[in-house]
Amino acid sequence: MFSREYSESLTLGLVMVGVLLLMWLLNGSQFVTIGNLQSMAFQLPELGILSLAMMITMLTAGINLSIIASANLCGIVTALILTRYVTPETAGAETMALVVLAIAAGLLTSVIIGLLNGALIAIVDVSPILATLGTMTLLNGVAIVVTKGYVISGLPEPVRFIGNGVVLGIPTPMIIFIVCAAVMALLLNRTRLGVNIYMIGSNPTACYFAGVNNAAVLMKTYLISGLYAGIAAIIMISRFNSAKADYGESYLLLTVLASVLGGTSAAGGFGKVSDLVIALIILQLVSSGLNLLQISNFLTLAIWGIILISVMVVNHVTQQYRERRVTA
């Protein structure tokens, strides 16, 4: 008999295989060309890294509504530095230094935002959904003020490589995503912080009495969440070759959708990186498959929603079935 976690992973795996076969069937051989696989590998990382940023907060029974707003602000900071200081006359080495500096500034911004969220949630004790609703609006406001609502475009070549390059046949964003996911998995499964994140998600009071420094754990959680949003930001500006205050707003609820589809409990305490990755692959397969069939993006959204509800229903039904077997 499978435990709850295994059976959910199993459902997810079956859905993935099913979707893959269905899309293959509908599209024929063009679905499994190198070109299509590569284009999927270009698209998945943005939502993927943002979903990791969302997931880690959901594990603590929180949520981070500000990830998109922070990503945009970080992207704007990076893009502003780049467009202001990198000119066609700048030499290669100098450009590289500036790129590194700009990216560092963007990531630093994301860390500061993470600390702000963390402080509101861990120290002021505001519920995460409210705190990040506030910071979401504030950060979006700051981004608009800084850019006056305009697009900042024209980034130097090395930055564009981050979002559009290919290394050994693998798109750079995919490599970044794999690293991010691996680091997150390691962090959650093999570090003190990771174990504490799961435990706090289930019962913060008992953690407090076991000597866990809850405030510190929550601070770190939102800091990491912010940092991941920052990393996603760099990929985003690179792929768009620009930054703007309202890019990717539709991603916000999709990250929650992906996390939940990947088995992350909205009540906290449970969720695995590997399942999230499967969930992201499912979403990407649907999206690319329908795209090849030239079906509207919006229908893709609808189908994602239907998949989420179907998987939740299957999980609910199997759990009920198991409980009836135990108690009845």
Partner: peptide
């Protein structure tokens, strides 16, 4: 959906937001 399948309202409505909106946009052609 929320009651019968006992799915949290925030998750249900995030999903149905996408479903309602997606289907509408496709049918109306935007």
């Amino acid at each position: 959906i929320i009651y019968v399948f006992n799915i949290h309202s925030i998750i249900t409505t995030i999903a149905t937001l996408n479903i309602f909106y997606g289907v509408l946009t496709v049918l109306s052609g935007g």
